[in-house]
Simulated assay, not measured.
Amino acid sequence: MNSPNRNMAIVRAVREQKRSPSKVAKHFGISRQRVYQILNAFDAGGAQAVAPKSRAPHTHPQAVPDKLRAEIVTIRRQLTRHGLDAGPETIAFHLERDGKRSPSTSTIRRILAKEGLISPEPKKKPKSSFIRFEAAMPNECWQADITHIFLADGTRVDVLDFLDDHSRYLLSITAASAFTGPQVAAELTRLITTYGPPAS
């Protein structure tokens, strides 16, 4: 333990209690040389001089450099100006596509929030307020969804899936760099040919 109380206890043991530096060193489990260092520091600067120094690093290697912060803000503003998705995942994709190291999406979100570029979300409803919808019979209702994912090399892939809402049967799942409306319609037509049309 290297607390100010410990160092001051060493000073008091020698100066006030008149104990020898050798005995004090043995009592505190340190070298006699260290006792003299503490005494000399106290003589030169008082109690503050023997207070332990912070062990926190002077630099933070994980901190996002100012240049990268500015680039994140610039990308956000450009995407927003063009009416495109400007979320942290998309910003990370653009950074990686340009060969730059991207911080985590949570770090990007914090940077955007600090710059006032993210509006705080309203308080979410409790889960108990949601009403779960489920079709009563198979083929009563199909759901389609497109999910954006990023591969390990940073490539963005869109995943299109169709699901029967009653049985949760996965009718189809396909991946592409992007899906157009006609491609989605073509996949729906193929599924109708295979399974028959859903009620909705």
Rank of each mutant, 00 (worst) to 15 (best):
Q33D: 04
I91M: 08
P198R: 13
H148T: 04
A70N: 07
K123N: 11
A56K: 12
S22A: 13
S102R: 12
F162L: 08
I30A: 07
G87M: 12
A186C: 03
G116D: 07
F133K: 15
E140M: 11
A51C: 08
S22R: 14
H148P: 07
N139G: 13
G99M: 10
P65W: 00
Q48M: 10
I118W: 04
A186L: 01
G83Q: 11
D66A: 12
E71Y: 00
G196H: 05
F162K: 13
A186D: 06
V159F: 09
I38K: 15
I192V: 07
S31G: 02
I10L: 10
V157E: 03
D85Y: 05
S106F: 01
T147D: 06
T105K: 15
D85A: 15
R34D: 01
S129A: 03
K53R: 14
A136P: 15
K100Q: 10
H94W: 02
V73T: 10
G46N: 12
K67D: 03
A92L: 00
I108K: 14
R55K: 09
M1Q: 15
I192Q: 15
A44V: 07
Q17H: 13
R55M: 08
L117V: 04
P88S: 06
W142N: 13
A86W: 03
Q48S: 11
L171M: 08
G83M: 04
V11N: 11
A144D: 08
A9V: 06
L39Q: 03
S177E: 09
R109A: 08
R76Q: 07
S104W: 00
T59M: 01
P122R: 09
R109F: 03
A199T: 04
I173H: 13
R76H: 05
G87H: 12
F93W: 09
I91Y: 06
A47K: 11
E140Y: 01
F93C: 14
R12M: 00
V64A: 01
T107H: 07
R32H: 06
E16A: 11
P4T: 10
R101L: 06
V157A: 08
I192T: 12
R69H: 10
S102E: 06
V64G: 13
A56G: 14
D85L: 07
R15C: 04
E115H: 10
L79H: 05
S102N: 11
E115Y: 00
L151N: 06
R132N: 07
T193L: 15
I10S: 04
Q37T: 02
G116K: 09
M137T: 10
G87Y: 02
R19G: 06
L191S: 13
L112A: 08
A63M: 09
F28C: 03
E16S: 12
R110K: 12
A47S: 11
Q62C: 11
I30E: 00
K67F: 00
D164K: 12
R101Q: 14
F42D: 03
S200H: 13
T193M: 14
K100M: 09
Q143W: 02
D98G: 14
P21G: 01
A144I: 07
T193K: 15
L79W: 07
K114I: 00
I108G: 14
A41E: 00
P103R: 07
D43E: 08
I111C: 10
T180K: 13
W142Q: 10
E115P: 06
